[in-house]
Amino acid sequence: MNWNSWIRQFHRWVSVAFTLTVIANFVVMGMNGGQQPPPYVTYSPLLPLALLMFTGLYLFALPYVARARSGRGSLSSS
């Protein structure tokens, strides 16, 4: 498995982890009866969100970098 495939697979699994932490956050908020949940529950989605941001930016930039490396990235039209 090459580097780009590994990053893409990692991004997918982190998105699952992020979704589960957000769902858990809502469940704990609903079970607390209006009280503030513990900080570790409130802040638990932040680490997966940061990882999603970095891997997402990498995946977003991939086609542009590949196009620039291949030499087809010029803006002038022939």
Rank of each mutant, 00 (worst) to 15 (best):
M1P: 01
M1R: 07
N2Q: 04
N2T: 08
N2W: 12
W3H: 09
N4V: 09
N4C: 04
S5P: 00
S5Q: 10
W6S: 11
Q9H: 11
H11L: 07
H11P: 00
H11W: 11
R12E: 05
W13F: 15
W13Q: 13
W13N: 06
V14L: 05
S15M: 10
S15L: 14
V16F: 14
A17E: 05
F18A: 09
F18Q: 06
T19Y: 15
T19P: 06
T19W: 15
L20M: 12
L20W: 13
L20Q: 00
L20P: 01
T21M: 14
T21K: 06
V22P: 01
V22R: 03
I23D: 04
I23H: 06
I23K: 00
A24K: 07
A24P: 02
A24R: 11
F26C: 09
V27I: 12
V27L: 13
V28I: 15
V28N: 08
V28T: 13
M29F: 15
M29A: 15
G30R: 12
M31V: 07
N32E: 13
G34F: 14
Q35I: 03
Q35K: 10
Q36G: 01
Q36P: 05
Q36C: 02
Q36T: 10
Q36K: 07
Q36R: 07
P37E: 10
P37T: 15
P38Y: 15
P38K: 05
P39S: 02
P39G: 02
Y40K: 06
V41N: 01
T42P: 00
T42V: 14
T42K: 01
T42G: 03
T42C: 00
Y43K: 06
S44V: 04
S44L: 12
L46F: 15
L47P: 00
L47F: 15
L47I: 07
P48T: 08
A50T: 10
L51K: 00
L51C: 07
L52F: 11
L52E: 05
L52H: 05
L52Q: 05
M53A: 11
F54R: 04
T55D: 01
T55S: 14
T55Y: 10
T55N: 04
G56L: 00
G56W: 03
Y58A: 06
L59G: 02
A61L: 13
A61C: 03
A61G: 05
A61I: 08
A61Y: 12
L62E: 02
P63R: 06
Y64E: 00
Y64R: 00
Y64N: 02
V65Y: 10
A66D: 03
A66V: 09
R67D: 08
A68E: 08
A68H: 08
A68N: 01
A68I: 05
R69H: 04
R69G: 07
S70H: 08
S70Y: 10
S70L: 03
G71A: 02
R72W: 09
R72A: 14
G73C: 09
G73S: 15
S74F: 08
S74K: 01
S74T: 00
S74H: 09
L75W: 09
L75P: 02
L75I: 08
L75C: 07
S76M: 11
S77N: 01
S77I: 12
S77C: 05
S78R: 03
